[in-house]
């Protein structure tokens, strides 16, 4: 029987965003920068005992220095904010997807975290071949959309490239029976975004938001726009854009009543 009185849950969520470091700097410089930053890391998260800790990154798979710099910062921050897993917002691999590309654009970049048993849960972006669903390190288990649970939080990875009837029916059926205290959906295209690059995906929102509202989804995470943005709560749902993990578009967020916080 579903509990109607929920206990207070503190969910700590880290959105790993961008580094405002100019293009063309070498990985070596990036490492030094990260090392210097380590001494001045600041954390305002509560890091409460028993809280669920995870990182969110999007649009990472460029294989560039910027991607490595963000990865370095993730490693640094994990020392003071020990997250157990990472959600990937899609565009996991830009360009070609040879075996070598999986190394240079993913497994080499996040080697320290992977070696430390940090799990990555991916979703597909518009630059990702669907075959990625079978890649062990993306933990998609051969599915374009899937659900997994951590404690009392349910996560739904959706394929926003292809939101067809089957996926919508699956989402509704899973959410309808989901008694988790927290429901978090993540996918590539943002229902709300103030970025100039793409902006809000209104036609997607038109279809999925009524389902989120009906079944009490609490948080929606997306990428696609290469920025960080926390949207002011929309109809009670917390929306985020985290797409600056590999290809930052600086100053791309426009002034908008939607913006809660951005960079």
């Amino acid at each position: 029987m579903r509990r109607f009185v929920f206990s207070l849950l503190i969910l700590s969520l880290v959105i790993f965003g961008s580094l405002p470091i100019s293009h063309g700097q070498s990985a070596a410089i990036g490492s030094k920068v990260a090392a210097r930053a380590n001494s001045s890391l600041k954390l305002t998260l509560p890091v409460k005992e028993g809280s669920l800790r995870f990182a969110v990154m999007g649009d990472t798979g460029s294989g560039t220095d910027k991607q490595r710099q963000v990865a370095n910062m993730m490693v640094q921050y994990r020392n003071i904010f020990p997250f157990d897993f990472v959600l990937m917002m899609g565009d996991n691999l830009y360009g070609s997807e040879s075996a070598k590309d999986f190394e240079t654009k993913f497994s080499d970049v996040y080697k320290v975290l992977l070696n430390d048993k940090v799990k990555f849960y991916a979703t597909l972006g518009n630059h990702d071949l669907p075959m990625q669903i079978n890649y062990a390190n993306f933990n998609m288990n051969g599915k374009e959309y899937y659900r997994f649970k951590k404690g009392n939080v349910a996560f739904y990875s959706l394929n926003s490239n292809y939101m067809d009837k089957k996926q919508l029916a699956w989402l509704e059926s899973e959410l309808a029976k989901d008694t988790s205290d927290w429901k978090i959906c993540f996918f590539h295209h943002p229902p709300y975004s103030s970025a100039k690059g793409h902006g809000s995906d209104q036609q997607l929102r038109e279809i999925v938001e009524p389902i989120f509202l009906k079944y009490g989804v609490n948080v929606v995470l997306a990428g696609h726009d290469h920025v960080y943005e926390r949207i002011k709560p929309q109809k009670g749902i917390y929306y985020f854009v985290s797409g600056a993990g590999g290809r930052l578009r600086e100053s791309d967020v426009q002034t908008s009543p939607l913006v809660g916080k951005s960079n």
């Binding site: 849950l9 969910l11 969520l13 790993f16 965003g17 961008s18 890391l41 509560p46 910062m73 009670g236």
Partner: peptide, 23 residues
């Protein structure tokens, strides 16, 4: 150094949610 501090502060965001009445 200033840039890095700024980026670090931008890097992290905390959300503390309390479960209430769903819309």
């Amino acid at each position: 150094k200033h840039k890095i501090k700024r980026s670090a502060s931008l890097l992290l965001t905390t959300l503390v949610f309390s479960m209430g009445v769903l819309p």
